[in-house]
């Protein structure tokens, strides 16, 4: 069994409404029963409603697998990076710290790394991953390229990401604008977006003291 080549996973955090349906649906997947693999992040809760659903991007050359001392993380021929193999994972946390997208989760109680495997029990037989099957705003979309292009004519999928000097290409695609200054964007520079004045994790209420 393998994920059919004509089906792709597209993510578009800008469309996320933070309903958490993906987080709940993820727990229904048979390959990681009862445990959600999705990170639902808020950027700056005091000032913004933006939420970010994070799933595995399934890198073509997965850093998590390369840095694994136990050789526990495998990428199947269809390009899906699987969860750590249970007999091998030694819970060193290397993958969690090395993933450029911050995806793997360390389940300390199981001494096991677990991550989004694109609901392999479903996607490998052509079904949508649980998260994509319930996402009401289609921030998480699983389908053909023709379907996504017809639904979002202003957008184009990006599968190259820049982290400092390192370029990472992925199986999962991020939706971006079709054109920037007349040209199609070739990649997404993630590290350029690092905030020079990052928000704190505590909420400050400017109405009380006139500052923030």
């Amino acid at each position: 069994m393998s994920v059919p080549g004509h089906l792709n996973f597209y993510i578009d955090p800008a469309r996320c409404i933070g309903c958490q349906a993906c987080v709940q649906a993820c727990t229904e997947c048979d390959t990681h029963k009862g445990i959600s693999m999705i990170h639902m992040e808020t950027v700056d809760r005091a000032h913004s409603t933006q939420t970010i659903p994070v799933v595995c991007m399934h890198c073509d050359s997965p850093t998590c697998a390369e840095v694994c001392p136990a050789d526990a993380i495998k990428r199947t021929p269809d390009g899906v990076v699987q969860s750590a193999r249970k007999p091998r994972c030694i819970a060193c946390n290397n993958c969690v710290l090395a993933c450029p997208f911050g995806v793997p989760k360390m389940k300390v109680e199981f001494e096991l790394m677990m991550k989004c495997d694109m609901c392999y029990d479903r996607s490998s037989v052509g079904l949508k991953p649980m998260c994509a099957s319930v996402c009401p705003s289609q921030a998480l979309f699983f389908g053909t390229r023709e379907e996504i292009e017809a639904a979002r004519p202003q957008s184009a999928p990006i599968d190259r990401f820049q982290f400092g000097n390192q370029t990472i290409t992925t199986k999962v695609k991020m939706m971006g604008p079709r054109s920037v200054a007349g040209a199609r964007p070739e990649h997404l520079d993630v590290t350029a977006a690092l905030d020079p004045n990052p928000p704190g994790r505590s909420i400050s209420l400017g109405v009380l003291n006139g500052s923030h």
Partner: peptide, 18 residues
């Protein structure tokens, strides 16, 4: 966590430019 946030912020920047 900051890596996860940066992805979405980078996408937002790209849309602003677009």
């Amino acid at each position: 966590r900051c890596r996860r946030l940066s992805m979405a912020l980078a996408q937002g920047r790209l849309w602003q430019a677009g």
